[in-house]
Simulated assay, not measured.
Amino acid sequence: MKNGVTIGQAAAFVGVTVKTVRHYHKLGLVAEPERDGSGYRRYGSGELLQLVQVRTLAAAGVPLAEIAPMLDADAARFGAALADVARQLTERIDELVARRDTLHRLADGDRALLPDRACAVLARMPGLGFGPDYVAAQREALVLARALVPEGFDGFLAQLEHGLDDPEYVDLAKRGREAETWEPDDPRIEELATAMADHYLASPALRGDHAGLQAWAKASAQYKLINDHRGDQAPVAARLTSLTEAKLRAAGVRLPNR
């Protein structure tokens, strides 16, 4: 009876494929036995032990490239190597959990792109009388603001929160939407711009904090992209925004240049 088993038997005993065993040989992780008189490689207990060790480490998440030095390491180095692998696995687990959470958020629509606090702001708007188009525009603006000016996002969000708590701001915002149906030279546009600017000047919370204002003041290109992200913006809306901003700048409020 010949000593040892064939590569197929060795693979089956250890729980891997023949292709995997050959890959271990190629990487130098397991010694390749000599051929016997019949031309077959026979795997003895030594090779089987190596196969089990490599398979166990690989199954535990140790990269194949790091297994060879571990097999020759003393107890202290082996323990340190295992600890490093454990750290890497923890990082991968955290990354996978974050990806899973993102998938869950995707199922909830806005929560995939915006934090819960921003979603709460958007959820309040319909109850205050804002229509779907307005809410959609605000959603897009928030997504862009978070991506393009992250350091100014919290301030922008706080301004919206304060605005929704302010009945006069809500009324002015609704009038701004109504104004989109006016003629571009309607004198009410100038009056509304003055009312909006005056209300902003009288309500510091609506203008944002110092850090947020600085962030936006340095982001002119991003500011323009966010404000003009809807190519179908009514001419009246653009004029109303321009007039309001001009009045605020004249009063000393720092705003990005378009």
Rank of each mutant, 00 (worst) to 15 (best):
A137H: 10
E91N: 06
D84S: 04
L225I: 09
L144K: 15
V135D: 05
R146T: 03
G28R: 08
G109Y: 04
T244A: 12
R258S: 14
G79M: 13
A195Q: 11
D116Y: 09
E168M: 15
A193I: 08
V52T: 11
A221V: 07
A205V: 07
E34C: 01
E168R: 15
R87H: 15
D228K: 05
H199I: 06
H229T: 03
A250P: 02
H199P: 03
A173E: 02
S38L: 07
G37N: 05
V5A: 11
T241E: 13
P235G: 10
L243Q: 06
V62K: 10
R77D: 13
A219G: 07
L57Y: 07
P150M: 15
R124A: 14
E151H: 15
G208N: 00
A145S: 15
L206E: 05
P33R: 10
A221Q: 10
G155D: 07
V5R: 13
H229I: 04
A197L: 07
L106M: 12
W216L: 01
M70T: 05
Y223M: 03
A58V: 09
L248R: 01
L240Q: 05
V54I: 12
A158G: 11
T20S: 04
L160E: 13
P150T: 14
P69M: 08
T17V: 09
H199G: 13
S220V: 02
D166N: 14
